[in-house]
Structures are given as C-alpha cells and as structure tokens.
C-alpha cells in the first residue's frame, strides 16, 4: 500500500503525538508533579517487561482477553441475530427495539451482582461485555439493514428473490459498512465490560490485578495492568478502523 503525502503527514503527527504524550508521562513522574502515585513511564515499562513477571501478566492477559473475545463474539452474534429477526419479522421490531434500549438503560454494573449469583464470578466480565457489545451491534445492524437502495430492492423483486436470498445477497452486504462501524465501537465496550466484571472478584485477569494492586499500593503493577488494557484496546480499535476503511471502500 502506497501512502499519499497527507497520509504520511497524518502518520508522522500521530507518532509525534504519542511520543510527546509518553515524554510528558515520563517528566511528570520524574519531577513527581502528580505525587507518588504517578510513576515514570520508564519505571512502568521496566516493571512490565521484567522476565520474572512474564507469567503473571501472561496469565492475566490470557484470562481477560479470552473473556473480552468471548463476550465480543457472543454479543456480536446476539446483536446481529436480533437485528436480523426484527428486520425479517417487522411486527416484532418495536418490541425488540424497546427491549434492547431497556437492557442498555440499566448500567451493567448494577447487574453484576446478579450475574455473580446466577452465573459465576469467572464469567461475569464476559456477560457484561456481551451486553455492551450486543447493544452497539444491534443498533448498527438495524440501521444498516435499512440501507439497501430502492433500485436494488426493485431488482431483487423482479428477479424473484426469496426473503433469505435477499437477506444474504442484498441486505447483509448493504448493511456491512454499518455493522463494521458498530464492531469498531463495540471493541472498547467489550474491554470495559470484561475488566469491570473482573473487579467483582474474578480469580484472575487484568481487572483483578488492578484491584489487588490498588489495595496493596503496588503502583507500578497498577499502571502496568492499566497500560496493557489500554494498549490492547487501542490496538484492537485501530485494526477495526483499518477493516472499516476497507469495507466502506468496497461495500458502499
């Protein structure tokens, strides 16, 4: 892929911004401008990449990322499925819409104790991530499924398309740009859900590391866990943006 001049400029400015941010982080820590709970960037990196802690962070990442991914996939499938159902069975649409907004109107954190009781501590994070992702995908997919153009709908009717053929060959491809945008915005929602869920006493994961580091005043550990979660979320978001650009170029 060749980059154009403005793209190179954008990229350079982006890198510069990140470097300035990290430099600011380092300096605030060095001069202790924000007190003892703000470590230097280099201290956090040293702590994070110490070989003796590879196992600790590896296990935490494995646990959290599998909850995030599980919640993301489950939420995606339920959201897309609900959107397709409400699109196919129009009379059900107002009901499903209202149900989805009601679920979204309850802060998942208020539901967490119920999940702990009903499911288990281990999968509470995944359950919250699922709910978060479900709503974003549902909204994106319902609006996307309405986006097929009238002339394409006429064409499919004249060609004698069945409902399922039309869904597969017209409605879903036409909805794909919206769905992929939804998938992008669902990524941080999945991270928030899973890590919040782990605060409620999962036996492993980044969320657990954060809580225990906070309670034991292990500042570099706390910052390391936050750094991992943020960096992973940003990377996932960035990858989804690339996918989004590709899909928007091809499907709309």
């Amino acid at each position: 892929m060749r980059l154009s001049r403005p793209q190179i400029q954008d990229l350079a400015l982006g890198v510069l911004g990140i470097l300035l941010f990290l430099l600011g982080w380092e300096l605030i820590g060095f001069y202790k401008l924000a007190g003892l709970t703000w470590p230097r960037f280099s201290t956090v990196m040293e702590y994070l990449f110490d070989p003796s802690r590879r196992g600790l962070f590896g296990r935490a990442m494995g646990a959290s990322f599998s909850m995030i991914l599980g919640g993301y996939l489950l939420g995606f499938l339920i959201g897309l499925g609900a959107a397709m159902l409400s699109y196919t069975l129009k009379p059900m649409q107002p009901g499903i819409d209202r149900l989805a907004s009601t679920i979204n109107a309850i802060p998942p954190i208020a539901l967490a104790p119920l999940f702990i009781v009903l499911l288990s501590r281990e999968v509470t994070g995944m359950a919250i991530a699922t709910i978060n992702v479900f709503f974003v995908i549902y909204v994106a997919a319902t609006s996307g499924l309405e986006k097929s153009r009238q002339n394409h709908r006429d064409l499919f009717k004249v060609l004698g398309a069945s409902k399922s053929t039309r869904m597969l060959r017209l409605d879903l491809p036409a909805a794909l740009p919206s769905i992929v945008s939804g998938m992008k915005y669902a990524t941080p929602a999945a991270f928030i859900g899973a890590i919040l869920g782990e605060w409620f006493g999962a036996s492993r994961g980044l969320g657990l590391l954060m809580v225990s580091a906070m309670q034991n005043f292990q500042i570099p550990l706390l910052w390391s866990a936050v750094f991992i979660a943020s960096a992973a979320s940003l990377i996932a978001f960035g990858l989804m943006s690339l996918l989004e650009r590709f899909v928007h170029g091809r499907f709309s």
Binding site: N151, H152, G160, P173, F251
Partner: peptide, 19 residues
C-alpha cells in the same frame, strides 16, 4: 413470471451491486 425468474429488467440507474 418474476417468481419463476423469467423477467429481465434494466433500470435507468444501472442498479449494479457495488460489492
């Protein structure tokens, strides 16, 4: 006829699928 896929149509707007 359209259910039997025996109709052909071309509109003013080509209605080609962009993907």
């Amino acid at each position: 006829l359209s259910r039997a896929h025996r109709l052909g149509v071309a509109f003013q707007d080509h209605a080609l699928l962009p993907w």
